[in-house]
Nucleic acid binder design. Structure first.
Lengths: 215, 215
DNA sequence: CTCCATCAGTACCGTACGGTACGGTTCGCA
DNA sequence: TGCGAACCGTACCGTACGGTACTGATGGAG
């Protein structure tokens, strides 16, 4: 009992035992390697050297396991906040390019693609609970970083926009375009990844053309 | 035998009998209503009043059925080509707005979302054959319309761009942003659809700011 | 040392699905 | 009228999965 408590404290604060986190790690690995079809309770139990009974005790249900996987992965990705230092045009551009590159890197990541595929596949049936989780934990998170960055740019009179949401949408669209969908559909991302930085710069330049304040 | 031949001729030229097209129609309906989980061979047979044996005879396999569904749906969507008349700035903008609105309408359609979800769910396992089909039959198609439109704009000295693919990517991103993904994840599109036309106009204005030739 | 909780491993159950086989029916054709 | 192909409806088979129950081992608490 006490042992469990210690482990729970030692974990990432997600209310998960180290053991449970390790199980989720293996489950994510299975999902990445073989898709949802490979994510069976027996498979997870075998891969993680635990019993199915424990799986059901910890996560209650297969859906509970999926939710826990999303929550666990989201808890691992920490988006560093923008340094609130004084901004000039060059620094803003650098920050925007860094944001764009990070965005492309995150979206093209193995685990991100696998979880998005999982949630999308689950979205048709009633609930789309996983979709909401991904949306809330993922987009909200990265949207906040972008929002803060854009707001800082406006405060420094380097950006001009009325609707921050619209500006963020334009930035996102210019950066990502249809690449995310193409990767979700299985297009090999190895070719793409090389041109990420160039793509990020081009997109940021276009964004600055649209929303940058000319002095 | 002859009857089959007649029916085949009478169909949309996809090499499909009317009966088979009707079956695919029911299959699409099942997929839209209940997702991939609801798309069972027995379910399709029941919904289409045909026997499972016929399903396997016509489509060979469950994957064959899925491929046939994508091909059938793609054959139904015909993208009207741009009228090659003389373009002025207003006409170009109108055409671009029409394209953007159509794009949003297509992407938010029931069947499109369901098929994309299906292909994405299938993408992790070996092949991603469905993903390639969707990519080829869907995006190529709509990309050609956009490409022709952009090229016409350049010929009329209304647009300026070096890389047509890049310009198309910018247009697509500005129009769609992350809405497609959000709809795929299950976000209710009823709210969104109302603002499609406004969104299309805003996106086209931004695109023209980026690539429009100032006179 | 004893008790008790937890957990791994496995066996088990019900169900549902993909795929096949078979009897009965319709319909074009000779 | 009789033949044969296509087809519907259904029954059937093997398998695989989600979920449960049981057994034995481990390890900490009193």
């Amino acid at each position: 009992m006490q042992g469990v408590l210690e482990s729970r404290v030692a974990s990432a604060g997600s209310g998960l035992t180290e053991r449970q986190s390790a199980v989720l790690e293996q489950a994510l690995r299975l999902l990445v390697d073989g898709g949802e079809k490979a994510l069976t309770t027996a498979g997870v139990a075998r891969a993680a050297n635990c019993s199915k009974e424990s799986l059901y005790k910890w996560f209650g249900d297969r859906d509970g396991l999926l939710s826990a996987m999303i929550g666990y992965q989201a808890s691992k990705v920490r988006t560093l906040d923008v340094s609130a230092g004084a901004l000039d045009a060059a620094a803003l551009r650098r920050h925007l390019v860094a944001f764009a590159t990070d965005l492309l890197d995150v979206l093209s990541g193995d685990v991100s693609l696998a979880l998005n595929r999982l949630a999308i596949g689950q979205a048709s049936r009633e609930g789309s609970k996983l979709g909401h989780m991904l949306q809330e934990r993922g987009r909200r998170q990265i949207g906040r970083r972008a929002g803060a960055l854009l707001e800082a740019g406006r405060k420094a009179r380097l950006l001009a926009f009325d609707d921050a949401e619209e500006a963020y949408g334009a930035l996102y669209g210019l950066v990502v375009s249809d690449w995310h969908l193409r990767m979700l559909l299985g297009e090999e991302p190895s070719e793409m990844k090389r041109s990420f930085s160039r793509r990020a710069e081009r997109a940021v330049d276009a964004f600055l053309t649209l929303y940058g304040k000319k002095e």
